[in-house]
């Protein structure tokens, strides 16, 4: 394997999309080639950091700086204007250069100033757009990464995927579906609990709300049941009362969960 086609495979290597054979090839190459190893290490580091990365926002500093500059400029102009007020027109007339060469220079100067200001005005929104696009891209990347981690065999990685979804602003339907199915059928109680917390953040989404209510009847672990009841009470979801009532009818219900569900019903109907 050459350095070039090894490097091309790095992304797939990191997302775990490679077959064992291909992984081995890359590992073998990396073991021998210092440069590729360094690159893979730094990529891995970036990949890991992505999870804990602060959300990229359109730089507030840039626009603040521009607006303060503009403010200063405006103030200066205003001051000039104030100063110029007494006998404004006569002064203006005085300012007008006598020599045609200077007149031309002044006109050109004004033109340049106009162009500069015009361009700055155009650049600022574009810069904002670029930053927003970047933030969107990071969101999309995270979403994809979260979704692919949730599918993993290892509970730690699934947990990482669910944790990563905490940072998303508007996860797409696919990810929400994944979180809901994790909540109902993940083999690990720990991962299911993490899913409750993730879905809590997106509870205003109608699909999520309904999914959370429906999930009450599907949980066997008291820990997850308790977390769901607490969540319903916390978001004051009155529609959950029926689900809580039918939970009370289920056999083998943990006595503490029974208490909690009854308390929840009281509070939600209050």
């Amino acid at each position: 394997m050459t350095c070039k086609n090894t490097k091309e495979k790095f992304t797939e290597y990191l997302t775990g999309q490679l077959s064992n054979k291909e992984r081995e090839k890359i590992q073998a190459h990396v073991a021998e080639c210092d440069e590729c190893r360094r690159e893979l290490e730094s990529l891995t580091e970036i990949w890991t950091k992505l999870g804990v990365l602060e959300e990229e926002r359109p730089s507030a500093r840039l626009s603040t700086r521009f607006y303060s500059m503009l403010e200063q400029y405006k103030q200066a102009e205003e001051e000039n204007f104030q100063k110029a007020r007494p006998g404004f027109f006569s002064r203006l007339k005085n300012l007008w250069p006598r020599k045609p060469a200077f007149q031309l220079a002044l006109a050109l100067g004004m033109l340049v100033l106009g162009l500069v200001i015009g361009n700055v005005w155009r650049v600022i929104p574009r810069q904002k757009a670029v930053n927003t696009a970047l933030a969107d891209e990071v969101q999309t990347m995270r979403q994809t990464l979260a979704a692919s981690l949730i599918d993993q065999d290892s509970a730690s990685e699934r947990l990482q995927g669910v944790n990563m979804s905490y940072t998303l602003v508007n996860p797409d339907d696919e990810l929400l579906d994944k979180l809901l199915s994790t909540l109902n059928s993940d083999s690990s109680v720990n991962v299911r609990l993490a899913a409750v917390e993730a879905l809590y953040l997106f509870h205003d989404h109608p699909k999520v709300k309904q999914g959370l209510i429906d999930s009450l009847s599907q949980q066997s672990s008291p820990m997850v049941q308790a977390a769901l009841i607490d969540l319903m009470v916390s978001i004051r979801e009155r529609r959950a009362v029926d689900a809580l009532k039918s939970l009370l009818d289920s056999e083998d219900l943990n006595p503490e969960i029974k208490d909690r569900a009854e308390q929840g019903i009281r509070r939600l109907s209050f």
């Binding site: 890991t48 509970a155 730690s156 720990n190």
Partner: peptide, 25 residues
């Protein structure tokens, strides 16, 4: 990633994987 319903969880680590989350419930 560990869950015990009635029992207790005891863990003594020699080292931890950097970057991976854990959960004990």
């Amino acid at each position: 990633v560990a869950h015990a319903y009635e029992g207790e969880i005891k863990a003594v680590f020699k080292s931890v994987s950097p970057g991976l989350p854990m959960s004990f419930t």
